[in-house]
Design a protein around this nucleic acid. Sequence first.
RNA 1: GGCCGGUUGGCAGAAUGGCUCAUGCAGAGGACUGCAAAUCCUUCUAUAUCGGUUCAAUUCCGGUACCGGCCU
Length: 309
Amino acid sequence: MPKVIVIAGPTASGKSALAIDVARTLNSAVLNCDSMQIYKNIPIISAAPNSEDKQLAEHRLYEIYDCSKRGNVVEWLDLCVAEIQKLWTENKIPVVVGGTGMYIDALINGVTPIPEVPTDIRVEVQQRLEHCGLEFLYNFLQQNDAPIAQKLNPNDKTRIVRAAEILLFTGKKVSEWYKTPMIKKLPEAEFLVVKIVPDINVIEQRCRDRLDKMVELGAIKEVEYLAQQKIPESMPAMKALGVPELMRFVKGYCSLQDALNEAKLHTRQYAKRQRTWLRNKLPADITLEEVYTGQPEYLNKIRRALNLL
RNA sequence: GGCCGGUUGGCAGAAUGGCUCAUGCAGAGGACUGCAAAUCCUUCUAUAUCGGUUCAAUUCCGGUACCGGCCU
């Protein structure tokens, strides 16, 4: 059975470094599974691999979308699956790394085959949301798809909007859609899941240091670029950690120090959410309880596990 | 030394003579199937201290401590 290595961990856990080392020993490539590193022009703030990293191992699916584009899981999944299959034909074991839980989940467990909702429907729902309020949409769901309404929290904007879109476009309840089995894009794949879950305080310290370093490396320039491009705040790339915070500084609303402190706090909170997700949703074959900084035993562990698969 | 004002959870900040001390932030835990670095849920912690009045005090009165202002 063809194999795929999946490396997951919170921000600043050293997962990218591990991915590079694994890819090198396997003479394979690293595939991005991060919803922000997929965007161009913000490599510093999104902590995408630098040129040195890229020399050590081949990296794919990084910095491929314009920041004005809205990425999504399924699109990423298609790209990722294509790259995995390519590597397989070369007899290589792909190394997928990233911190976006939903993407990993979709890769391993599949998604329900709901057709893509066209833009006009999405705009319509968005307008309803703005004019009539979230409550209106929730009531709409309660009347037309009670099971999903019950499952969702009345304040959960993202999911209520999504459910409304699906219902309007497909005419079928989301709760019905969810009864159809999820489709795996790579049913034949055998995944070796490696999880890095260091102590949250260690992660926090690394996030702080990294953010300071990002500023030294030119993170402000990237944010200024986004401002110049006048990319709407609603775009995903504009929500990358550090972007909204530094944007406030760039626009003169706060000091750099304040912006950084905010960004550091939000990064920690994000890392915490990632840990929760990893802990409860991703069973792993190998778990590292400390930051990866090149310990050879972990590489050996992975190699041994691969042979056993 | 004298006079005045203040003291509510880790922080900010409401309220009240009596029922479980609002709320926000932070912290902790959790959810997560097409924007997910998003979106959302649950939850711990306080009336400075001592005494008095009262059926009942965080709330009223007094002492002490601490903080701030003014005076000598």
